[in-house]
């Protein structure tokens, strides 16, 4: 009798155990099935080298390779036409005709120059697309030997970097620069090219996309698992080029751009000189190690991060008051400060 009872009890336990196992398996399958149902495409990653930088693109779409190829081609074409060192570019043509009246150029390059001038004015001239003569004087131009120039020469060159020397003629997409001036879209072109790449991908109907051009990043849409893109911020003094582990930006739309003193620099007489030159003084900006800016447009974030880098103590206030954009700064002392909604 007792043995029969025990057997029944044992069977009961086996049934309960089996039922629990079935429930767990069903629950696991159900959780797997609750992901986004609309994703039909495949996500690929392609990497190319142009604009003197490595451009990484991820595309989630049907036929993603074809769409990435079209976006890369459009980006490359745009960057070639904005490159002041390319003799076939629009910007080269403007610089060659300095002081000789307006030069008519393509509408999209005109729009970037117009935007660069406007954003530069909003930063009080700290960001200037006419920085080329100063960059060349320091040897930060292409294939040049960098060295600290004579102060007299710096002071002589400074007026040539003022935005007032650029006159725009929107009716004819014309650009006129004063004699001796030279445009350099280096501080704005990467952001503009990334924006252009995302625009092309969106027009091709991609579900999601990610473009990283040397650290200038813009994303569109959620990944196939329904999660946002996760973007780290470079720790300016970590030798392994790692990120600030406490500050990861999650986005399903918009950009993250960082300007830092660690990319292009040289050392002379034991002093380190980086390439972000302050047009007020003509010397490398001081006070911060890096500035990161988030917001919708990559080109705006690009300009704001460069300008804020020159502002030192005032950078955070400036970014706090700039609508639609947030910032993180790392001071020379290594202190990390952020705007209220970063």
């Amino acid at each position: 009798m007792s043995s029969k009872k025990e057997e029944k009890s044992f069977e009961k336990r086996r049934i309960i155990g089996g039922a629990i196992a079935v429930i767990v398996i069903i629950a696991a399958l159900w959780i797997r099935g609750t992901g986004p149902e609309t994703v039909t495409g495949e996500r690929i990653q392609e990497t190319r080298y142009f604009m003197d930088t490595v451009v990484i693109m991820q595309v989630l779409a049907e036929n993603p390779e074809e769409k990435a190829e079209k976006a890369f081609a459009a980006m490359k074409d745009f960057s070639d036409r904005a490159d002041r060192f390319n003799p076939d570019s629009e910007v080269y043509r403007i610089n060659q005709n300095a002081g000789e009246g307006p030069v008519e150029i393509d509408e999209d390059i005109f729009a970037i120059i117009e935007k660069g001038k406007k954003l530069g004015e909003e930063t009080g001239g700290l960001f200037t697309i006419a920085i080329a003569p100063l960059m060349d004087l320091w040897g930060f131009g292409k294939n040049m030997q960098p060295a600290v120039p004579d102060d007299d020469k710096i002071q002589e060159i400074l007026p040539l970097t003022a935005l007032e020397g650029i006159t725009l003629y929107p009716g004819i997409n014309g650009v006129e620069i004063a004699s001796g001036m030279e445009l350099d879209l280096g501080g704005i072109a990467k952001g503009a090219v990334v924006d252009h790449g995302i625009e092309v991908l969106v027009s091709l109907g991609v579900e999601a996309a990610f473009i990283n051009a040397g650290g200038d990043i813009r994303v569109h849409g959620l990944k196939e698992d329904g999660t946002p893109w996760r973007i780290g911020i470079r720790d300016p003094r970590r030798e392994d080029r790692g990120h600030l582990t406490d500050y990861v930006v999650e986005k399903d739309s918009g950009s993250v751009v960082t300007s830092g003193d660690y990319e292009r620099y040289f050392t002379e007489d034991g002093v380190r000189y980086h390439h972000i030159l302050d047009p007020r003084t003509g010397y490398p900006a001081e006070g911060l190690q890096s500035v990161s800016v988030t917001g919708e447009s990559c080109v705006t974030a690009d300009v704001l991060s460069t300008a804020a880098f020159m502002m030192g103590d005032e950078a955070l206030d400036f970014l706090e008051n700039y609508p639609g954009y947030e910032g993180l700064i790392v001071t020379d002392e290594g202190e990390i400060l952020t705007t209220s909604n970063f």
Binding site: Y49, V54, I56, G214, I217, I231, G232, R234, H243, E263
Partner: peptide
Amino acid sequence: GATIVCVPNQLAIWLEGSDDSGLDGISE
């Protein structure tokens, strides 16, 4: 995703592969 770029000598080097950092990229 990490890169090395040699501008005057026109050489780019990068690492490809699966990433366990949980990041899609680093802004730098």
